[in-house]
Design a protein around this nucleic acid. Structure first.
Length: 382
DNA sequence: AGTATTTGACCTGT
DNA sequence: ACAGGTCAAATACT
């Protein structure tokens, strides 16, 4: 473990150095790129080290929980329980990776300048990503290639007026991940349900629309849009709209609202090892179709890439010792920070969050209603 | 049976 | 009128 810590600290130092030089190097993209690559490589070594120490316990447990589901994009209800729980496991006052909005800084306090880090040996997932987003053949979760009769909605002359649209944020960038043949943005700790897809004028790739899975039960109006960039099929643009109001039924808000509106651009990440590309961390949303559980390696990868702690319970262990090494590093704003509202609950969150994860899973609407009828917001207008 | 995704229609802002 | 955003029936999947 000491070697791992040393490796992580080295990576952090590299990142700090890069941060310090950003202002002067912003006009030297090649140097910036190489610096970024050094940071990534250092973290990657740490990942490999952690992987050997933590042989992906979540992946194993996830396999049990998820019951396989290879290639399926469905069955997200059970997965999201894990995601919610694990997301909370990562936050807290001692977790340096929570505490700042992804739109403000990277994991190490680096300002997000739109840097795109290409991992060495990255395969070309553009086709798969495009196919997935577009629902083209090859998208494992997408049926419906044949022409079918009308499926849209008929005229709805009467009915409640729509809610006003939530303004979107400005574009931002984070890493994407590749799982097998599919490419998707990294998990942001929330569970999303896809509700639409549109071809956007002037864009090669369609834009997908997601809303919070808990919308129907907690009136959570958080939404996000996901779209591949035209000029870089390795990069996703993720735009967040609205605030998460879910996860508040039985305990205080554990996953604070995303600083919104926010747009994140996600770059496809591929790690390479002696055994070939490895599986990045899970995309939690059922729409993302990741049948595999997250790994300790992907945890660190996600941290360094997105600046957001991924929803992994391994962080229960990793969080404290990572923090020790990072003490004195980049600042974060404490309990009132955007992503770490649960700081005062450090001692009790595992049990409380387990319950909350169970009851907030949204896996069964009817049962949720029966259990917590009073907690359900009388929402939905439609 | 329950839930998620797909996708054409419809709504809304410009 | 147009483009983007949303709805909701049909469908797929577990």
């Amino acid at each position: 473990m000491d070697a791992t810590l040393v490796q992580i600290l080295e990576a952090c130092n590299l990142a700090k150095a890069l941060e310090a030089e950003l202002a002067t190097l912003q006009n030297h993209p090649h140097y910036l790129l190489s610096s970024c690559e050094r940071v990534v490589e250092a973290f990657h070594k740490a990942i490999e080290s952690m992987r050997s120490l933590y042989p992906s316990p979540l992946a194993a447990s996830a396999g049990l929980l998820y019951g396989g589901g290879e290639g399926s994009s469905r069955g997200g209800s059970r997965m999201q329980e894990v995601n919610i729980l694990d997301t909370r496991a990562l936050e807290g006052a001692d977790n340096p990776f929570f505490g700042r909005g992804p739109e403000e800084t990277t994991a190490l306090g680096l300002p997000q300048l739109g840097l795109e880090i290409q991992m060495p040996g990255a395969m070309a997932p553009a086709a798969a990503a495009t196919a997935e987003l577009a629902g083209a053949p090859g998208y494992t979760g997408g049926p419906q290639t044949e022409v079918r009769p009308f499926r849209g909605r008929r005229a709805e002359a009467e009915g409640p007026p729509r809610q006003p649209r939530i303004p979107a944020g400005s574009p931002r960038r984070v890493r994407a991940v590749r799982t097998g043949n599919s490419v998707h943005p990294p998990d942001d700790g929330y569970t999303w349900r896809k509700y639409g897809q549109k071809n956007i004028l002037g864009s090669r790739y369609p834009r997908s629309y997601f809303r919070c899975t808990h919308r129907n039960f907690y009136g959570c109006e958080a939404k996000k849009r996901v779209q591949l960039l035209d000029d870089d099929p390795y990069t996703y643009e993720v735009t967040y709209c609205g605030t998460h109001t879910c996860l508040t039924s039985t305990t205080p808000l554990l996953v604070p609202p995303l600083p919104l509106p926010t747009t994140i651009i996600t770059t496809i990440a591929t790690t390479t090892t002696a055994t070939g590309p490895t599986v990045p961390f899970t995309s939690g949303g059922p729409s993302m179709g990741n049948p595999e559980g997250p790994t300790a390696a992907s945890l660190a990868e996600a941290m360094m890439i997105t600046g957001q702690a991924p929803p992994l319970s391994t962080s229960i262990q990793l969080g404290s010792w990572l923090t020790r090494g990072l003490e004195g590093g980049s600042s974060h704003s404490g309990p009132s920070h955007a992503q770490g509202g649960g700081g005062s609950r450090d001692a009790e969150w595992p049990v409380a969050d387990l319950a909350d994860a169970m009851f907030n899973s949204g896996s069964s609407g009817s049962s949720m209603d029966a259990i917590f009828p009073s907690t359900r917001q009388d929402n939905q207008n439609n």
